[in-house]
Design a protein around this nucleic acid. Structure first.
Length: 210
DNA sequence: AACAAGATTCCCT
DNA sequence: GGGAATCTTGTTC
């Protein structure tokens, strides 16, 4: 399975849900940094009031969403960067935002990149995740993921299975647009401590994995 | 040309 | 919980 077929073969919300438990890595000086994806959000394109491409909005900043499935959309906001993968065919501006990972490899390097932050604070948010990888520019925006140091392991044998995947409203969406603001397009394993805003009392002892 | 707002994070109270 | 840091777009003067 290649990226183009994976990111075009089902609806974008299903892709976001299916990504939970897959390994995301970033190769840096021969070392792989990364971990299991534990939080992802789907943005459903032109009709989605919360998407950057709502109403067909298009600019150099969000061009990545219009690329074919499997291309990267690196967005900058304030001093942080977000990691998105475009979904569906070229010209259909849908995508998934990876919001958090459970760190597995290169933890020491990621702690350095995060200026000494450790534990859940390492990667439990979209900006934190990219900072842990050492991303400081939009260099890989618009590139096919195949041609970048980023990789997502699409092998089902390697995928970690969640006990229960929760579908909830997306984070940071203006609640005045209730229909799209409340749409359950954010996915995460119940009780995984690396999910953004996960309450300590809700932590699962097995991190939400089966 | 200036300004507000946004798929955020950090530090202080 | 509030405010600052500070990138890009779209709106308005």
């Amino acid at each position: 399975m290649n990226y183009l077929s994976y990111f075009t073969s089902q609806s974008t919300d299903k892709i976001a849900k299916d990504l939970i438990g897959r390994m995301l890595t970033f190769e840096n000086n021969g070392e792989k940094l990364g971990g299991y994806i534990v939080e992802a959000e789907a943005y459903m394109g032109i009709k989605d009031r919360a998407a950057h491409s709502y109403g067909g909005r298009r600019s150099p900043a969000n061009e990545g969403l219009y690329c074919p499935g499997g291309c990267l959309y690196i967005y900058s906001q304030r001093q942080y960067f977000f990691f998105d993968v475009a979904c569906q065919e070229a010209g259909e501006p849908q995508g998934v935002l990876i919001r958090a990972i459970e760190p597995v490899s290169g933890i020491k390097q990621m702690e350095t990149n995060r200026h000494g932050k450790t534990g859940v604070l390492l990667t439990n948010g979209p900006g934190k995740l990219m900072q842990a990888f050492g991303i400081t520019s939009r260099k890989w925006d618009l590139h096919d993921m195949n041609d970048t140091p980023f990789a997502i392991d699409l092998n089902d044998q390697h995928k970690k299975i969640a006990r229960e995947i929760i579908a909830a409203p997306r984070v940071g969406i203006n609640q005045s647009e209730s229909k799209w603001a409340q749409a359950p397009l954010r996915f995460f394993p119940q009780g995984n401590p690396y999910v953004s805003d996960m309450k300590k009392r809700d932590y699962d002892k097995n991190h939400g994995w089966a």
